[in-house]
Design a protein around this nucleic acid. Structure first.
Ligand SMILES: [Mn+2]
Ligand SMILES: [Mn+2]
Ligand SMILES: [Zn+2]
Ligand SMILES: [Zn+2]
Lengths: 148, 148
DNA sequence: ACCTAGTTGAAAATCATTTTCAATTAGTTT
DNA sequence: AAACTAATTGAAAATGATTTTCAACTAGGT
């Protein structure tokens, strides 16, 4: 997506077009990888040395709000833990209401993985898969609430 | 996994069995959901009010080292961003070396999702899927290095 | 040119995590 | 049972990331 197109979208939402915002957009739109706020800040500073880190944070908030950025998950960037129950390769279904977790093993991603490897040239080494929703218990509760 | 079994594993790795560690183990092993360090700390304090938050952090480090805990990823707990390229539902393949991201759309998880929903009683509302590996460029570089 | 709501950035506040260090203790050795 | 010792603990300080506050500034409308 071009910076001008993005700028137009922002304006369409009643947001002002400042040179700081343009600079941030240029950096994020011009990169082919994911960037942390700090990394974006460092890159933007080369073009706009007086920009504040706060402005980068605020810009990311706006972009996330408008669903213009994607979040990328790192293997080790989450600090929510639970005791490991199955010992081998497995994944989780997480209840977004109470946090309950159920494990499952057969993810059947080999076929997809091979296809993607072929199509993108990546040597794929791992995957992250997680389902989210409501557990039976929490489903019952919301049903009971709806009933009142 | 029982606390005694866990305690035994720790001891097998030359780690001392303190009452603090027992208390932390009891809380994590007794929960059916994922917990942040702060949440674990609050729960442990009920049984062991003088424990320090530092001890919880250290215990989690140990458990992660021995691969006795699982990490759970939250939708919004990662702060690495990139500009959104496709507009609809899609996923990422991330290069663990340079951070490059390639998108793909057909994840074909419906079948799996239905099976899991049936088997677990969850109302599944979303999923998180991400592949990681090395992009073509970074593959070339490591090959060149190996050649020297 | 003027107005004004939105925006900015320095600084302080808040929150999470790590480091430091002196005191304590688990598990071993006498 | 007492002594020993390396591992462990927790208060406090240090570090790092993110948010809040607020006075000054500016984009875009009139
Ligand atoms: Mn698990
Ligand atoms: Mn994407
Ligand atoms: Zn639930
Ligand atoms: Zn790469």
């Amino acid at each position: 997506m071009t910076v001008d197109r993005l700028a137009h979208i922002l304006r369409g939402h009643g947001l002002k077009l400042t040179s700081q915002r343009r600079a941030v957009l240029k950096v994020i739109a011009g990169s082919h990888g994911h960037l942390t706020p700090a990394a974006i800040y460092e890159l933007v500073r080369k073009e706009y040395p007086t920009i504040g880190l706060v402005t980068v944070y605020r810009m990311l908030e706006v972009l996330a709000e408008l669903d213009l950025v994607c979040r990328v998950h790192g293997e080790t960037t989450c600090r929510s833990y639970m005791m490991r129950r199955p010992s081998g390769h497995h994944h989780h279904i997480v209840c977004s209401s109470c946090g309950k977790v159920v494990d499952f093993a057969r993810c059947a991603l080999d076929e997809l993985q091979h296809r993607l490897s072929r199509e993108t040239g990546f040597k794929i080494q791992g995957h992250l898969l997680e389902f989210s929703g409501l557990c039976q218990g929490c489903l019952g509760e919301t049903a009971a609430e709806d009933h009142r």
